[in-house]
Design a protein around this nucleic acid. Structure first.
Lengths: 205, 205, 205, 205
DNA sequence: GATGAATGAGAATTCATTCAT
DNA sequence: TATGAATGAATTCTCATTCAT
């Protein structure tokens, strides 16, 4: 790792990954070609193949990196949870903080090309879902959660996380706490528990 | 003039759309080529261009058809709603019934290629989201909904609809009522309001 | 076959085959690329693939054509044979006449690139060998040939045909009768039966 | 200075040659790449170029080695010959013994890839042919051979040697004496002199 | 000398699109 | 309008060779 060669190798790999992240975000996975990735790099075309076999492989590498960065944090949050509220709010806070910090990462998964939106879940991400379901099952067994449909609950959590997360990122400023409060409140008490907005004019009446 | 030729033209268009739906489902949007679509048809390659300019256009046409089939129903359901519960449960029931009836349609949007899942939202679908948001805003103005973040609420509804919908379809038998109940309960009262499952052991007691 | 399209298709196929024959002869099979073949044509690169899947397939097509041209003639010659001499001399004459007439054909099989010589036997050619062996076996059964090792005899005939054939073509003028006489004499009576040359000086003595 | 370094150099060269022999046999000359050869070695790619300029050069080296191993023996055999029979039978015996002993060597020249057969004659091999022709000319001058076409006779000997040799190797057990007897008999007395096989039925009579 | 990553020319192949029939 | 072959730009990928270490 200290030789010049090793440093160059690591740097090249990172350069390709960075270029790929950028191009995937800009063009979307489907429209991206290996050439596009190489072109966004100052490397020769053949060099790409010293590191990855195909665009699929780079994509996987990026997603795996991402999942590996956020999954342990989510896991830790859920394990630490002593109540349903902690379980849910901890998860949403962590997830929203993560995507706010590393927006490009999320952009690769959730992309807006023109007006069309695409969301891609790789095996690593899906494995994260399974982890979540398993933790819900465990929480049910421990009596923290009532005996509900763990699969649907997991689906609902994921759906809300991705959709609300996307809208959160489109706002300025990005308020992760507010988004987490919203999502948590929904799961804790339904629509009636949602934070209410100050009614600009009516509040005075 | 609305005779044979007209009928042939419509038939050809339909043949292409049907082939495209099938191929998109099987290969996914990205991997599908115009050739693939034509091949799934008994038409010649040049004929494709008498009907559509590109694969993008066929895809849009399919999605527009889909959205036009479900959006008016969802709209009608929400307009008819006299309470929050009717608003929410009506929407989920309609959506889940629709995707259960026309699974291929949903499969084109939500695809599992190998292990990787993709979800594509076209302009028509996104327009449906905006419609939903507008109706939420209207419901808030009418006092049906409390003054909550309409954008986030819309996002949450959409996220739950797609994610729970997907899991619903993977079950056998597909129980749209149960899924709608689950989703509605979540929005009505949070996790505590979710339907509980019969606890295997407890049921014997 | 009378439409312009059919005529063009046939012409294009022939153009590719002709170009391939030429290039294979010049560069040899191994060194030839599909690009080389296309370049020797006035067609576009993609057009090649409307006719053949690969260079292998063109090569096979050429060889099959060749084999189909000469094999029936050889076959007929052997069937007509009423004696060993007719069998052998007929075969050699036919083969040598054929390669003298259609030199390029033979050149594709037997090629001299620089100093290195290559000979390639395709399945069709090998099938021709098997045919020859079968006819030898038949001739043995009919008492025309003594009970010898048909496989080795076939090999010997083939080896002499190709090697002597090659040397024959390098002479000027090409004398197929002389080559056939030589080869036939060898098989009829061994080296003592070979035609002797006029000894320039000694003949006068 | 003929110590470690010297030994390593020779060992590396031999390693490359051995790998090349193996790979050429397996993949054929055309399909073999320098990478393939290096991969079959525990050397680095760059090292190859310290020993050979290209795959052509390795191939030549292998063939030259082969030719140098068998040519002197064939030469000695012919020089020792006191009669035509000795000349011919000695040559065939030596050649067949050689290819039976060192099958891989022969396999590099004479290859069956799938169904297609290839035979490659390098300059060294061709030089061996010229040597044979020269010896025939000399034998004619000395009155051992009659005044026949030396070029054609050489061609016939070579053709029979390669073709019968190939078939000989495909038999089990490999009987070099029998093959040499067959080939020699052919050249000594033509088809009538060929060894006859025991006729299954006749042997009982 | 050995190493092995970088290079980039070039080969194979695909595919959207055109256009003569 | 339907047809389907021709087109050729674009893409993926390989490989011989170089050269800094």
């Amino acid at each position: 790792m200290t030789g010049k060669r090793e440093r160059t190798k690591t740097a090249n790999r990172e350069a390709i990954l960075a270029a790929a992240r950028e191009v995937f975000t800009k063009l979307g996975y489907g429209a991206t070609t290996v050439r596009d990735i190489i072109r966004a790099t100052d490397l020769a075309s053949g060099t790409f193949y010293n590191y990855f076999k195909s665009k699929e492989e780079v994509f996987q590498a990026i997603q795996d990196e991402n999942a590996l960065r956020v999954r342990p944090r989510l896991r830790a949050e859920r394990i630490r949870a002593r109540s349903v509220e902690e379980f849910i709010s901890g998860s949403f806070r962590t997830f929203f903080d993560y995507i706010a910090t590393d927006r490009q990462t999320f952009a690769v998964i959730r992309r807006n090309a023109d007006t069309m939106r695409v969301r891609m879940d790789t095996p690593e991400i899906i494995a994260g879902f399974d982890e979540l379901r398993a933790d819900i099952v465990k929480a049910i067994a421990e009596g923290i959660f009532p005996l509900v449909d763990a699969d649907y609950l997991m689906a609902a959590l994921v759906g809300v996380a991705f959709e609300v997360g996307e809208h959160m990122l489109s706002r300025d400023p990005v308020d992760t706490a507010a988004a987490a409060n919203f999502a948590t409140a929904l799961f804790m008490g339904g629509f009636r528990a949602l934070p209410t907005l100050a009614r600009p004019a009516a509040s005075a009446a």
